[in-house]
Design a protein around this nucleic acid. Structure first.
Lengths: 195, 195
DNA sequence: CCAAAACAGTTAGGAGGCTAATTGTAAGCC
DNA sequence: GGCTTACAATTAGCCTCCTAACTGTTTTGG
C-alpha cells in the first residue's frame, strides 16, 4: 500500500548491462536498494492487512503501543524500556517517539478518540498540554489483537533461520548507520567543507 | 516520509524479555521485521530527498522511468527489458507496471502533464484509450537527474561490500518469496483447506 | 441491429502524511 | 505589572495513495 514501486524489479544482468551506459550506476548497490524497498513494501503490506482487518492503521497502532507501555508493565519491555516507565503521554511526546509531526499526531489521536481507544484529558498543571490515555476498550483491543499480529510477523520472517535473521539484521543496521551519517552530513553542511 | 515507524527500535534483549510474556512473539522475527521496515524507511527518505530536490515524487519518478524506456534504448535495459521494448504507454498499462490503481495513475499523469514532462494524446484507433508520452522536457529532466540519483543510491549502499550486498539481496528475496506465498494463500483460501 | 457486458479513463470522497499559520498558555525580562 | 518570546496543540490546505461510482467506447451475442 505505501510507496509506489515497480511491480517487477529489473534483473541483475539488466543492471549490469545498464551500468555500461550509465557510469554512475552501481549495479549491486541499485539491486540492493530496490530489493530493500520492495521487500519492505511487501512485508508492510502483509502487516497492514493484519491491522486493517481490525480497522486500525500502522500509524494508529504505533500510538497505541506507545500508550500501552504506560498501562501494562510487560508492554514496556516490548518498547525498549529497561524498567516500567510511564511512557509518553502528551501529543508532543507521542509525536516525537513515533517520528511524526505534532499535526499528524493530532489527527491520529482524533481518530483513535473517535473510535474510543484513547481519551484526551487536560493537564491540570500546564493548561497548554493534554494528557492522552488508553481507555479500557483500547487496552482490551491490544490484548486481543497483539498475539495474532505477532504470529503474522513471525510468519513473514518464518522462512529465515535464526542465523539468517541475525545476518539480515546486522546488514540492515549497517545501512541504517550509513543513512544516519548521510542525513547528518546533509543537515550539518549545506555548504560543503571549504578546501 | 512514508510510514509511521517508531524512532527508536526496541533492543533485542527487550524483545527476548517481552517474549516471556507473549508466547506468540518471536524475538528474532520481530527484530528482523522492525529493522527491515525501519531501514527501508530511512533509505526511502534519502532517495526521496534526492527526488524532492528536483520537485519530483517517487510516484512520478516511477512513471517517468516507465515512459523513458520507450524513448531511450539504453533506458530499457535498466527496466529489465531484454531488448528495446516500447514500454507501457496507456494509463492502464502504466498503472499495472507501477503497481498502483488507475485512479492513482490518472493523478500522477495529471501532475506530470501540468509540469510539462509528459503529454496525453488520444488513441486514434480505440477512443477509450489515451497514449502517454514523455515530452522533450521530460527526457531532458531524466538525462539531467539520473546520474545524481544513481550516486545517491550508491551512497546509501556504499557501506556494504559486494559480498554483503549479495547476501542482503539473497535474504531479502527469501522474504519476498515468503510474502508472495502468504499473499497467495490468503487470496486463494478465505476458507482454509478442508480436512 | 441493438441491448448488455466489458473495458479505459476520470471523478468524488476518504485516510494519513506534510508544512505553515493560529490560538491559547507559560516563562522571561525590563 | 505588562511586553515579548517560547511553547502545546490545533486548524487549514496540499500531496499521494486508496476505493467506489460514473462516463464514454468497444465488444459480444441473441
Amino acid at each position: 500500500m505505501p510507496h509506489l514501486l515497480l511491480k517487477d524489479l529489473p534483473r541483475y544482468e539488466c543492471l549490469l548491462e545498464a551500468a555500461r551506459e550509465f557510469p554512475d550506476l552501481d549495479p549491486s548497490a541499485a539491486a540492493a536498494f530496490l530489493h530493500l524497498l520492495h521487500t519492505s513494501d511487501e512485508a508492510f503490506a502483509i502487516s497492514d492487512r493484519s491491522l486493517a482487518a481490525h480497522n486500525i492503521s500502522h500509524g494508529r497502532f504505533g500510538v497505541l503501543m506507545l500508550l500501552w507501555q504506560g498501562v501494562q508493565p510487560r508492554a514496556a519491555k516490548l518498547m525498549g524500556a529497561d524498567e516500567c516507565v510511564p511512557g509518553p503521554r502528551t501529543p508532543a511526546a507521542l509525536a516525537d517517539a513515533a517520528n511524526v509531526t505534532r499535526a499528524t499526531m493530532t489527527g491520529l489521536i482524533d481518530t483513535l478518540e473517535r473510535d474510543g481507544y484513547v481519551k484526551r484529558e487536560p493537564d491540570p498543571v500546564d493548561r497548554r498540554q493534554m494528557s492522552v490515555r488508553l481507555t479500557p476498550s483500547g487496552v482490551k483491543f491490544m490484548e486481543a489483537f497483539l498475539p495474532g499480529h505477532f504470529k503474522t510477523i513471525t510468519g513473514i520472517m518464518g522462512t529465515l533461520t535464526e542465523a539468517e535473521r541475525k545476518t539480515l539484521v546486522s546488514l540492515l543496521v549497517k545501512v541504517q548507520q550509513q543513512t544516519a551519517e548521510l542525513r547528518a552530513r546533509r543537515e550539518s553542511s549545506p555548504t560543503p567543507a571549504p578546501g
